[in-house]
């Protein structure tokens, strides 16, 4: 086996172990585990209720059917679920940086960003994942191809969710008080990724495909699941990869600032 392959294998083992430990930790308190997962599922069904009422009165929103909207909910919440369960610190980096907790990770012989990301599991987000699966069961296309497309959409969505927010959170390396800002950005990003892309026009739509690229998540049910569009799918994959590269790059530049002691004032 080549050294590169060995390295990736050990990294994979590290990831699997961390996830297993996270889950075991969460299951320690089974009662509160069930409650937080359950309430999250219930929370998401509020929107099913909303759209249910909506579609009894208005059968179409700019060409979107009830099924399409349910897939937006499934992919949006599912992408968040994957992100928050497996990479739970994707919205916690700003806090970790500004409170000086990054030192712990820097001392360990694993890729820092990856280590930070996986070291937390948001328990309630398991509810989001389950909700995503329930919606797929109720409204999804139950063929081999349908499932494959659904999983692909979920993967792309999760990647964009994680790496866009890593970028936003990494602002903490460069400006003070980035925690509040990072949270607002995340909130706005998640919210808009749960609505049909086509209700937005003009400037709003432009922002969705540039500055706040949630459009690449919320349009997946149409552009990938329903009427596969090569240009959209490749575009989304490209955005996901681009964000990932950029995120690693920016995080590394940030780390240099962190290490060079420029952060002292903020860590007090």
């Amino acid at each position: 086996m080549s050294t590169a392959a060995k390295k990736s294998l050990s990294l994979l083992q590290f990831l699997l172990t961390t996830w297993k430990l996270n889950l075991a930790g969460a299951m320690e308190f089974r009662m509160s585990f069930s409650i937080s997962v359950g309430t999250m599922i219930l929370n998401n069904f509020v929107w099913v209720f909303f759209w249910g009422i909506y579609f009894t009165k208005f059968p179409l929103v700019n060409g979107w059917t009830l099924q399409d909207v349910m897939m937006v909910q499934a992919i949006g919440n599912g992408a968040f679920g994957v992100a928050a369960v497996f990479f739970g610190n994707f919205i916690g980096i700003a806090n970790i940086v500004s409170t000086g907790q990054l030192d712990t990770y820097l001392a360990q012989p694993k890729p820092v960003l990856l280590n930070v990301l996986v070291s937390k599991m948001t328990v309630s987000a398991i509810g989001d994942l389950l909700f995503c699966l329930i919606l797929y069961g109720l409204y999804g296309v139950h063929t081999g191809l349908g499932l494959a497309k659904f999983l692909l959409a979920l993967l792309i969505g999760a990647a964009i969710m994680v790496f866009f927010n890593v970028l936003a959170q990494s602002l903490a390396f460069f400006i003070g008080n980035a925690e509040g800002l990072g949270f607002q950005v995340f909130n706005a990003f998640l919210t808009v990724s749960l609505y049909p892309t086509n209700i937005f026009h003009g400037l709003g739509k432009l922002i969705l495909f540039t500055a706040l690229p949630a459009g690449y998540i919320s349009f997946l049910p149409i552009g990938l699941l329903r009427d596969w569009s090569n240009s959209f799918v490749w575009g989304a994959v490209g955005v996901a990869l681009g964000l990932a590269l950029l995120a690693f790059r920016v995080f590394r530049i940030g780390l240099k600032r962190y290490g060079s002691g420029n952060m002292m004032t903020m860590r007090m």
């Binding site: 208005f58 929103v61 700019n62 919210t191 808009v192 609505y195 049909p196 086509n198 209700i199 937005f200 026009h201 709003g204």
Partner: peptide, 11 residues
């Protein structure tokens, strides 16, 4: 509110 405004305008 912006999202809702967009949704209802379309509706």
């Amino acid at each position: 509110l912006y999202i809702f405004a967009q949704l209802w305008r379309v509706t």
